[in-house]
Amino acid sequence: MKHVLLYDLADDAMPLAQEHYPAHRTRLDDFHARGLLLMVGTFSDAPVGAMAVFTTREAVDEFMSDDPFLHHGVVGAHRVREWDEVLQP
């Protein structure tokens, strides 16, 4: 079971996103290096939102606990969904 984090950009948040992206990216890179974040990216109709796939719910919670995008109002709404990957290796 994987866990998917979905972010929707807050209204008029693009300047905030640009300001806080370096710290957000550092956090993404750290979680990926630790093997907790499997993939992440924005949707093609950006700046609507993004999706990240984590190995556990605990990893999602840890990520969100200190994510600059959440703390500085870049994210308007977010949700976490359990995802049962069918094509597992």
Rank of each mutant, 00 (worst) to 15 (best):
L6H: 06
L38C: 04
D12K: 04
D30G: 13
M39Y: 11
S44G: 14
A52G: 13
K2D: 06
H32R: 15
V75D: 00
F54E: 01
D66V: 02
H71W: 03
R57N: 09
V53E: 10
G49Y: 12
D61R: 11
R79T: 04
A77E: 06
R79H: 09
L87C: 06
Q88Y: 05
K2L: 05
A77W: 03
D66C: 05
H20E: 08
E19M: 13
F31Q: 01
P22G: 10
L5A: 00
L28M: 14
L16T: 06
R79P: 08
M1F: 08
L9A: 12
A10I: 01
M1A: 14
L37I: 13
V80R: 01
A10G: 00
E19Y: 13
D67F: 09
Y7V: 02
D30W: 10
A33Y: 03
V53H: 02
F43H: 07
H71G: 02
H71E: 05
P89T: 02
D29L: 15
S65E: 10
F54M: 08
E62T: 11
H78S: 10
W83I: 00
K2T: 12
M51N: 05
V75R: 01
D45E: 15
D12S: 10
H32M: 14
V4A: 07
G35L: 07
Y21K: 15
W83Q: 00
L5Q: 00
D67R: 04
M64P: 09
P22K: 13
Q88M: 06
M51H: 03
V74A: 03
G73C: 03
R27G: 12
R25F: 14
T42R: 11
H3W: 08
T42M: 07
L38V: 08
E58H: 10
R27I: 03
E82G: 09
P89E: 02
R81I: 05
P47E: 01
A10E: 00
P47D: 01
P68S: 07
A59M: 05
R34M: 03
P89L: 12
F31N: 02
H78E: 13
H78I: 01
D12I: 11
L9Q: 11
M1T: 13
E19W: 12
L5V: 01
T26Y: 04
D84W: 06
K2F: 06
H32F: 15
D30P: 15
D45M: 14
P89K: 02
L38I: 12
V75L: 05
R34A: 04
S44P: 13
P22W: 12
T42D: 11
L37T: 04
H32E: 13
M39W: 12
Y21V: 15
E19N: 11
M14P: 09
F43N: 03
L36I: 14
